[in-house]
Structure formats: structure tokens, C-alpha cells
Computed example of a mutant assay.
Amino acid sequence: MKKSLTALAALAALTGSGLAAAQSSVTLFGVVDAGVTYQSATARDALTGASVKTSKTSLSNSGYNSSRIGFRGTEDLGGGLAASFWLEAPITNDDGATGISTFARRSTVSLSGNFGEVRLGRDYTATFWNDTVFDPFGTNGSGTNVISTVSSSTGLNNANYVRASNSVGYFLPPNLGGFYGQVQYSFHENTTTDATSTTAASSSSAGRYVGGRFGYANGPLDVALAVGQNVAVDTTTLERKVQTINLGASYDFGPVKLFGELSNVKNKFDTALGNSHDTYNGYLIGASVPVGAGLIRASYSVVRYNEGAAGVTGEDPRAQKLAIGYVHNLSKRTALYATVARVNNRNDANYTGSLVSDSTTGYGSAGVGFAGVPRSSTGYDFGIRHAF
């Protein structure tokens, strides 16, 4: 349940802050999610060809929803104009090690009106929305689709995959008959110089993100197209750009809600020897089925690597993931959940993402490692989520 911080506003007024006293609403909100996670992974030793299996059992967080705590507020400026802020911090409630030390999930201030909304700060990227909105598992826990995990992998070094700092975003107003959209630009904040850059690590453009998303939501239908490009930091190329385009849709029939997504990611290199790129093509199909107080979730996702991507040498390399789960709602705020997922790599696909979620990002984190060429992995989540 959301808590109105009237005491905080009163305290601010007593300290003589007229601006704080004019704040129309300030809300404390959050999620505490914890569960037992089991992971196992099988790999092939690159030298001997022998199979190596590793496994791990842990108390994790964010298996259903990302654990977080946040503050948001809005001031009515009159004439349909409003100023808002949003500060949201990741928390690791399994060990208590991470609290409100940073607002790395979101930290924005915005101005909105009949013209739409202008938002400044750290926020979700336009291209990440489709990966999470059209995934029945919401890119959380063992069920996270492989499109999301590959896109955020270390090999791509796409630091602006989920969120971008130093961004300026514009959102269309909500009164456009179901049409919605946003455009976003993230400043790289590097010093510009006339000297020739020898690697993307010293390029003045490294860290810049630009993207947009446009969609239509009306009744049971929701469909959106997103395009974005991030200039990645790289120590071996003159410049490297990670270009993303994805199309997602969902349709709620009532007894079942269907999800789907198509995704293309290009890892584009500009080197002294010329230009080249790796390509990752993915798709997802999924469904959620209400059953009494519960919800069954299922998805199947695939990412195909072009030959040579991320050092892959096999013919038609791809990663495939099947996930199924059940959520039982004890109330509007509290739920029990269980998820099982299986990943299979085909023809040396270099999928090394974990199956466990991470509260700081909401998608895959460091879990079971692969001792050699990854072949398959399995993950289970059993947990409880409480929102307030």
C-alpha cells in the first residue's frame, strides 16, 4: 500500500521551505521479493571435450518483481502543468548489502502538460520497453527471455541496454486515442577533442544513446516498435555501435493473454581494416492464463547468432529457452511464485547468461558459471513478493 508522506511534507514546511510545502503529493513505494533459486549448467571443455556440470542453490531476490524502494511526487502548477520527480533505488533484501545507496534504477525530474512530458535523468531506454513489456515474465528471474539476456551480455558491452543516464526524453500526451510514444537522447558527457581517437574507449561519442518507441494500445491490443543505438566503450575498435530494433505485441483474449516479439541487434564495428558487424536475431512467443487467484505464465524465446558473432564458429548457432511458471496472489500486494526454465545452446552458440535475476537491473546476473563452451542450463525459482 502506498504511503503518503504527509509527515515529511509537514517537516519541510516547519523548516521554512515554501517550495516543499507546495508539494501536492509525495509517495513512498517499493517491492520486497525473495526466493530460493537453484541453477545447474552443463558445458563442454574446450580442450578435452568432456562435459562439466556446475550447480548452485541460493536465496536470491527479484525472481518475480525487482526488489526496490522509491520516492515519487507531483506538484500541480496550474493550467494543466505539473512538475514531478522519481527516485528509485535497488535493494538486495536477501543479504541487506544494498540499500538506498544509489538511485540507479531511476532518478528523474520532469515537466508535463497538454504537450506531453519532458523527462530528465536516468531512465529506461526506449528499446528496453518491448523486451520487458511483451515478456510474460517481465525480464525477471529464471524465466527472463534470451533476447534480453543476450542483449545485455558482457560481449556486447551495451551499458545502455536497460537504462541510460544523463538522458533527455520526450513522451507523447496520453490523450491520442491509444497512440503513445517517446524519443530519448543520452549525453555521453565526454570531452571533445580534435585529436584522433585510436579506440572507442577514447572516442568522444562513447556512452551516447539515442532511441525512440511508438505504439498503440486500445482495449485488449498493445503493439509497439522501438529503435535505438548505443555507442559502446571498446578498447579494440575505432568505434562500436550497438543498434537495436524490436517489435512487440500482446492481445488479451480474457481466458488467455498472448505475447510476441521480434528483435534484431547489430554489433557494428568500425576498425582500421574497415567495417563489420555481428547480428543477433531473436523472437519470443508467450502466454499468461488467469486461474482463479493465480496466473500461469509460459514463454519460448530464441536468439540466432550470425556465424562469427562473439567468436561463434558453429553453423546456425542459436540459444533456445523454454520457461513456465505460476503466480498465486494471496492479496493485491502479496504473491507466491514458482518458475522453471531450460536453456539449450545449439552449434556453439555463445550464450553465457545466467538464469537468476538481479535486483539492480531486473534481468540476468552472475550465477552459475560455464567451464568451457556452454551447452545447457536449468533454473528454478520459488519465492514470495510483497509490494507496498
Rank of each mutant, 00 (worst) to 15 (best):
L14T: 14
G364W: 06
K3N: 14
F137N: 01
E239R: 15
T237M: 14
V256E: 09
L238S: 08
N158C: 04
G18R: 13
Y280C: 09
S25H: 06
G260I: 05
Y180A: 13
G121A: 05
L238W: 00
G254A: 03
R163L: 03
N190Q: 12
V26P: 03
G178L: 04
L336T: 12
F253I: 07
N345R: 02
N157P: 06
V31T: 15
A104D: 13
N306P: 12
A34D: 04
F103N: 02
F71A: 12
G379S: 08
G353I: 08
N347Q: 05
R72S: 07
T334W: 04
A309F: 10
S152T: 11
A21L: 06
Y300H: 12
T6M: 07
S288T: 13
A46H: 06
S51V: 07
H386S: 11
G79N: 08
G369W: 02
V256F: 00
S288Q: 12
G18W: 02
L77N: 02
L28N: 05
R342A: 06
T132E: 14
N140R: 07
I100G: 03
S142T: 15
S203C: 03
A89D: 12
V168W: 00
R72H: 04
G292P: 01
Y124S: 09
S359L: 03
R44A: 12
F259K: 07
T244M: 09
A349Y: 05
K321A: 04
L322M: 10
A206K: 11
G169E: 11
A104K: 08
L247Q: 08
G260H: 13
A341P: 10
S153V: 07
Y351C: 05
R68V: 01
R297W: 00
S101Q: 15
A298P: 01
L28K: 02
H188V: 11
S142C: 14
L120I: 14
A200R: 06
R385C: 10
G311I: 05
G311A: 04
F259N: 07
F85W: 04
T6A: 12
N306E: 00
T48W: 10
L295H: 00
D316L: 09
F214K: 04
S301R: 01
P220Q: 01
T125Q: 06
A97C: 03
R297H: 07
S202H: 04
S377M: 08
T196R: 14
F85R: 10
G325V: 00
A34F: 14
I384P: 00
T244H: 11
N65F: 10
S204F: 09
T193K: 12
T378P: 01
D194G: 14
A82W: 02
Y170P: 07
A164M: 11
S62I: 05
S165N: 15
T191A: 14
G113D: 08
D222V: 03
G212A: 13
E315K: 15
R346N: 06
K332D: 08
N145L: 01
S84P: 00
D33T: 04
G207A: 08
F134V: 09
T192N: 11
T237K: 15
R163P: 10
D135H: 05
A249I: 07
F259I: 06
A349F: 06
V146R: 02
Q184C: 02
E117S: 12
G362S: 06
P173S: 00
G18M: 07
